[in-house]
């Protein structure tokens, strides 16, 4: 019996088909819808309407700010955690890591719902009235809670890869703890940070389940905007989606997401 021989090119076919159907064609459809009007005529109307409307622009800016704040808070929490875990000589540190990652395995909507109930409970306590109406705070809190593992994991894995002898060398050459941290740890964990930042920043611009449930839908992020337009006007919805795509593309490019250097993406999950 002849053993079927698969060339490298043949093996690429499923992936190519997948790419064409689920990436390239949908993308072209979005671009097509964004630049056509109701009668499918080519039109710049959506483009002009989008950029001449201050409310749409401020929603994008707001969304960016919420995503930025979420990312910064996640980074501030995740970095020390990852650092301590990676450097410590604890025997069962994977248990602690697991505790941080464990929530990811529980249904996301369930967790957000639980958080909503928790906030309701808290806001009924003495002196906590402010919580009921602080929708932005609750939204950011929920996003930090949900996306934190995505920040911890990549930073932790890159830090594990740092050769301990580098720390020793730095110490031998007379660098203090602060210098070692700033000159060795931070630069070498940069790929992990970048990967974590992209994984937190993007969903916090689009994940409107959190803002709807915790912010009582009074916080409008760009993802919700796209969703609402797709209920009624696909063309405008596609335009907003396209603008988001450009924002994402630029921010990924700036953070070095497209660099082909080996270690940059190595920490990606």
């Amino acid at each position: 019996m002849k053993i079927p021989h698969f060339s490298r090119k043949t093996l690429c076919i499923p992936y190519a088909v997948f790419l064409i159907f689920f990436v390239i064609i949908p993308m072209l459809v979005i671009v097509f819808y964004a630049f056509t009007d109701k009668n499918m005529h080519i039109s710049l109307g959506n483009f002009i309407r989008f950029f001449s409307d201050p409310t749409k622009l401020s929603t994008i800016v707001y969304s960016l700010v919420i995503a930025l704040i979420t990312t910064v808070i996640c980074l501030l929490i995740a970095y020390p955690v990852a650092y301590i875990l990676a450097r410590s000589k604890m025997k069962r540190k994977f248990v602690i890591l697991l505790l941080f990652v464990l929530p990811m395995w529980i249904n996301f909507v369930l967790r957000v719902n639980a958080l909503r109930e928790l906030f309701n409970l808290l806001s009924s306590l003495q002196g906590m009235d402010w919580l009921a109406s602080s929708n932005y705070f609750k939204t950011v809190f929920g996003m930090v809670y949900d996306f934190l593992p995505f920040m911890i994991l990549p930073i932790y894995t890159t830090m594990l890869k740092i050769d301990p002898s580098l720390y020793e060398a730095s110490r031998d050459l007379g660098a203090g703890a602060a210098t070692t941290f700033l000159r060795i740890t931070v630069p070498l964990s940069m790929p992990g940070i970048m990967s974590g930042v992209t994984m937190v920043f993007l969903p916090s611009m689009t994940n409107y389940v959190v803002s709807d449930m915790l912010g009582n839908a009074k916080v409008t992020i760009i993802g919700k905007f796209i969703y609402e337009y797709f209920g009624t006007d696909w063309h405008m919805g596609s335009m907003v989606a396209l603008v988001l795509l450009v924002v994402v593309f630029v921010s990924t490019w700036l953070t070095g997401g497209f660099s082909s250097e080996e270690n940059v993406r190595g920490a990606n999950l």
Partner: peptide, 10 residues
């Protein structure tokens, strides 16, 4: 729809 998007917008 435009009205609604203005209302919901930040």
């Amino acid at each position: 729809n435009e009205l609604w998007s203005r209302v919901k917008a930040e």
